[in-house]
Simulated assay, not measured.
Amino acid sequence: MVSNDGPVNPTRATTPESTPIGLLVGDGIGHEIVPAAQRIADAAVSAVGGTPVTWVPLDVGLDAIGTHGTPMPESTLVALAELDGWVLGPHDSASYPEPFRGQLTPGGTIRKRFDLFANIRPARAFAGVRAVSPEMDLVIVRENTEGFYADRNMFTGSGEFMPTPDVAMAVGVVTRRASERIAHAAFELASRRRGRVTVVHKANVLALTTGLFRDVCHEVGEQYPGVEVRSEHVDAMAAHLVRRGEEFDVVVTENMFGDILSDLAGELSGSLGTAPSLNASETKAMAQAAHGAAPDIAGRNRANPTAMILSTAMLFEWLSGRGGDPALGQAAERIQLAVANTLEAGVATADLGGLASTAEFAETVTARVLRR
């Protein structure tokens, strides 16, 4: 079934002739998992009779350093501005030569340029995949633009600084505006799911910053009388996810807490290799799997494409929900069901204990997507 795991803000319809989507392969295993997701997405659109996707390949990452002298060419950003959605593969910025290694990552640059304020990260257990929390089915809604991450909380410069060589300091930023819009995204999502939101904070210690976040979320919650809301301290929430993760529906939190909790939830539900992610604003969205570029297995046909496939399905849902081709939502449903059935049948890559290669897993999912 379609999970509706993304904020829906209809503003501009996709053209009926085709659906243009940016395609940024990225680094490492991106060269394997992004094409796999692309083929499966095309098969799903064809199976439901939707308008075809026009993929727009764009340079990014290590390849772009070779061709453009930078991992994030301005020409790519200009092209992205003309698109409603795009798929971004993982980046391996640690392998970039200086001075690029220490700069903002390609994903971070895109996120800041287009104000992708909502990071939507589902954590769902699949039959056939061993999980600590086999009944988990939740979504973490992470505020993506401020908080305590140094690359996200300043207009210019960094939120980290050193007044002396022996003292390092960091600035955290929480605003009412950012808290309100991420809270609306969470409550709208919960109203389409099981109707429960958990606000995660640390107001017993960070009383002004995360206290403001907590209070604004509760204020927004009053506009959604059909949604139950509760609060948890982040440390308690981590324990609750381990002990009774199946009880949670939508979890909304600030940037750093959301990053940590979503990785934890991904592992508890099975693996980060099955954890999709969508970064969205009110007008644009980017599918980007939660895991990294895994350079140690790149090019060996061993990577798990599940998270990238499901992230692309999330993008289809988002595009469909905001006035695009309704068939994209149907295609997303086919993709999600095909992935679930494939895993349940025991077809999985090595990281999940299976024997399938990247290509074999993708071929099996494609065949299931095309079944009438």
Rank of each mutant, 00 (worst) to 15 (best):
R243K: 15
F248H: 13
T358Q: 09
L58W: 15
F148A: 01
T70V: 13
V216H: 09
P295Q: 11
E363Y: 13
E160M: 07
P99M: 11
P7A: 15
G270N: 02
P225K: 05
E222D: 14
M154R: 10
N4S: 15
L24Y: 11
A81I: 04
G26C: 04
N204W: 12
R300L: 11
V2I: 14
E188H: 14
G354R: 07
T156I: 14
R302Q: 15
G354E: 10
N279Y: 12
L206P: 14
D63K: 15
G258Q: 12
E344L: 13
S75Y: 06
V60M: 10
G292S: 10
V250L: 03
G6F: 06
K284L: 03
R322F: 10
R214L: 07
V173P: 00
A131Q: 07
D166R: 14
I110S: 00
A131G: 10
D249C: 15
H201S: 04
Q103S: 07
A287M: 03
A41Q: 07
E282Q: 12
V171N: 05
R322M: 10
R194G: 09
N279V: 00
T209C: 10
T209P: 05
R194D: 02
V251R: 03
D137L: 13
D59P: 00
T145Q: 02
G273E: 01
W318G: 04
L264A: 09
L264W: 00
L355I: 14
A64W: 10
V45R: 09
N153S: 02
A348S: 12
V56C: 07
G323S: 14
T70P: 07
A131D: 07
A275D: 09
T342R: 01
L319I: 15
A307C: 02
T283C: 07
Y149P: 00
S262D: 02
V78W: 09
R300M: 15
D59H: 08
G324W: 08
G30T: 11
D249L: 12
R152N: 00
M1K: 14
E246V: 08
L319M: 06
E98G: 10
G69E: 00
R121A: 01
R192S: 07
M136S: 03
G69K: 11
V129S: 02
Q288R: 03
G128T: 01
D235F: 01
A123W: 03
T164W: 12
